[in-house]
Simulated scan of single mutants.
Amino acid sequence: MGLNKDIKQKKFKSEFEKTVVNLIYTRNWLDEQQQKIWKPYGLTTAQYNVLRILRGQHPEVCTVNLIIERMLDRMSNVSRIVDKLVSKGYVSRIPNKKDRRADDVLITKEGLNILDELDSSLQKLFDQINSFSDEECCQVNSFMDRFRGTTPD
């Protein structure tokens, strides 16, 4: 089904408006698909994002500020998210040696194991929905970068 049928809208003011609505709709659809994967692990999108950031830094520790800079959703309360992940045993807080008021964050073995399991499930989802060539993906990435007014990598 196309966007018009999916949201039961016959016309848009312009193709650009349709593109904006399509991006929002598709982002929400993809988020729903991913949440089905994370739900059995008790994870949210933001928590998953923090775990991926920490895995990328592993085995080095990560500051909360670095996590904030790298978050996909910058509106997230990273300290609260880290606390939730600590309570689940997926990350640990370590006192910062240079600043006693700050903590560093490190992903635990349990957190790494959970990500390994999630990687497999996410890959299955990606395999199901990917009908694009690498060249087409590069084009879409370029379009999205331009959409945000940034220069492609």
Rank of each mutant, 00 (worst) to 15 (best):
N113Q: 14
T44F: 07
D73N: 14
V21H: 08
M75R: 13
L51A: 07
K109V: 11
P152G: 04
T63G: 03
L54M: 09
R93M: 09
K18M: 08
N141Q: 10
L43T: 12
D127S: 14
V21R: 05
I94M: 09
K97C: 11
E17W: 06
D73F: 06
V64S: 08
V105W: 09
R101I: 02
E32S: 12
Q35H: 11
N141V: 02
M75V: 00
L125G: 08
K8N: 14
C137V: 07
G56R: 11
N4Q: 06
D6M: 07
I114A: 08
S120W: 06
Q9I: 12
R93H: 07
W29I: 02
S131F: 15
K11H: 14
Y48N: 12
T108Y: 12
S142I: 02
S14F: 06
L3R: 05
R101K: 10
R27M: 04
I114R: 09
Y25R: 11
L66V: 01
N28G: 04
N130E: 06
T150E: 10
R148P: 00
G56Q: 04
E32Q: 11
V140G: 00
I114Q: 08
S76L: 01
N28Y: 11
V50K: 01
P152I: 04
V91L: 10
M1S: 09
S14M: 03
I24P: 00
V91C: 13
V140L: 13
G149C: 06
E117M: 14
D145C: 06
A46L: 00
L30H: 11
I53V: 07
Q33R: 15
T108L: 05
K39M: 10
P40T: 00
Y41A: 09
K124S: 12
K109N: 14
G89V: 10
R52T: 03
N65M: 04
S133H: 07
R74T: 04
T63S: 12
L30M: 12
L122P: 00
F132E: 04
C138N: 07
F132D: 06
T150N: 10
T26D: 11
Q35T: 09
L118V: 12
H58C: 02
S87R: 13
D99C: 00
L30F: 15
L43S: 11
G89T: 08
R27W: 09
T44G: 05
G2Q: 03
Q33Y: 05
T44M: 01
N65H: 15
K10N: 13
M144S: 03
I129K: 14
F132N: 06
V61Q: 10
G42H: 05
L72I: 08
A102T: 10
